[in-house]
Amino acid sequence: MLSHERNFTRSELLAVMTARMLEDGKTIFVGVGLPMLAAALAQRLHAPNITIIFEGGVIAPEIKPGMLPLSTNEVRAARKAVMLPSIDDVFFYQQRGYIDYGILGAAQIDKYGNINTSVIGDYEKPRVRLPGSGGANDIASTCSRVIVSTFHEKRRFVERVDFITSPGYLHGGNTRREAGLIFGGPYKVVTDLAIMGFDEESKAMRVEAVYRGVRIEEVLENMGFRPIIPDEVGEIEPPTDEELKILRSIDPDRVMLR
């Protein structure tokens, strides 16, 4: 996408494209930041009946524009919720099969959709100690469908993650199932350049569509591994004025649209 045609930021683009992935009537496990904005945006557009679930123990909160929570376990996150279960219970609903989508970010993601949010470099004496799993491992392990929403950058898309915090398809093929993860797995990877999925057999990442104006070379240049490029790559329309207007109204102070 040529920059002079754009009337939106990378964060806005990522939030809108993630929102479009969410199906109405489903339960969505989201964290703070862009995933939360995406879910709140989807609720105001095509998916009024999605249920937001927060890790801190919240079912069906109403996100009030301009009063966004900074964590998933504070008063603001619980606004008008129907239930405040214990944290364990939230994950038990998920393990039981009641949570349809989970949205995760990634410091590093590899070609099989494994995510690292723990350490860069050696584990005992890391070059960078990252915050850690939180609920990301649990979401990646037992949520029905995981959407990874992250910026398309070479340092993030690596051949092999330094540490598998949150399992994708592990070493590809059937290895996820063999490890005992009998359900779920990464469903889509949404970036600010493209939408990617995973090959049914090899479970390697595959480009499915690029945003209008994005060249496939641009997608590849910003990745540390080569994803599968099918013969036909779809093209996706940029954010509409309506999407952007509503998104901006949810976060008028740009707390999360940084």
Partner: peptide
């Protein structure tokens, strides 16, 4: 936290969130 863990001055034992809960 980065200073203490990256210089091995403190240990960071990482579990998943449900892992701690269980």
């Amino acid at each position: 936290l980065r200073h203490y863990v990256e210089n091995a001055l403190a240990e960071f034992e990482e579990w998943s969130h449900l892992g701690i809960g269980l």
